[in-house]
Amino acid sequence: MNDAAHAAPPGDTPERSILHSVLIHSVLIAVSFVMLYPLLWMVSGSVRPADDMFGGQTSLIPSQVTLQAYKSGWFGLQVSFGTFFLNSLAISVLATIGNVLAASVTAFAFARLEFVGKSFWFALMLGTLMLPYHVTLIPQYVLFLKLDWVNTWLPLVVPKYFAVDAFFIFLMVQFFRGLPRELDEAAMMDGCSAWRIYWKIVLPLSLPVLATAAIFSFIWTWEDFFGPLIYLGDIHTYTVQIGLRSLIDSSGTSDWGALFAMSVLSLIPIFLIFLFFQRLLIEGIATTGMKR
């Protein structure tokens, strides 16, 4: 099913419908522009000369267009941004796989299984959402240092395979609870194991929430800067975000043009990921709806 299948409800006459849609589109386009103005400014900032960047330029049109910033940004550091993109991509893909797998397994336990101490663990799981990470940073650093993981990607990837981000567990719990319980019961009557119910029934029916989790997981890992900032010392292992931040030194000279240029480029992969998964999300949900 696609979007068209959810066409305007019956009862709207064609004329009303046209007027309606013109109205909706003009509102949406106007709102889109407001939403996008800062981003458009960023694109325009990326092609401005450095001395045209500040000093109150509200206009989106640069005084002169130069692609210099893309070059100086990409090649400006001793390692090119290409490396950072590959690093970010690898870390984000690995983290996303870990997050979706581990969180769905855990959420399945919380949403569909019964065991002693469940409520206790659920409360603790939510509790982990509440502690600001700034105060666990140093104990965690010491822990990873002892494991000899510092200066590798391991601290950024391995924890995701142990579902340390409770957001995804909670999200999936909420959605798994919405799946009809009769399905499990029927499967159990047929002698299916918990594992088969998870794998054959819950996961296929949960494509939308899995897609949602994958989108967020990928994007948030891509955008994370505090973890990489602390754990990655060698510039060859840097992620895009750390590369971006390396362009800015607030105490002295900064290459703002390069920052904007590389920021624009850094949005492209996550935007594509979003476009890809949102199809999955929409189609997946439609399927779920039909089965009910």
Binding site: A102, V105, T106, F108, A109, F110, L113, E114, F115, K118, W121, L124, M125, T128, P159, Y161, F162, A163, V164, I169, S193, A194, Y198
Partner: peptide
């Protein structure tokens, strides 16, 4: 079964 599914999270936690 419950603790089997909970294991990854529990170990991480």
């Amino acid at each position: 079964a419950g603790y089997m599914f909970l294991a990854p999270w529990l170990i991480g936690f």
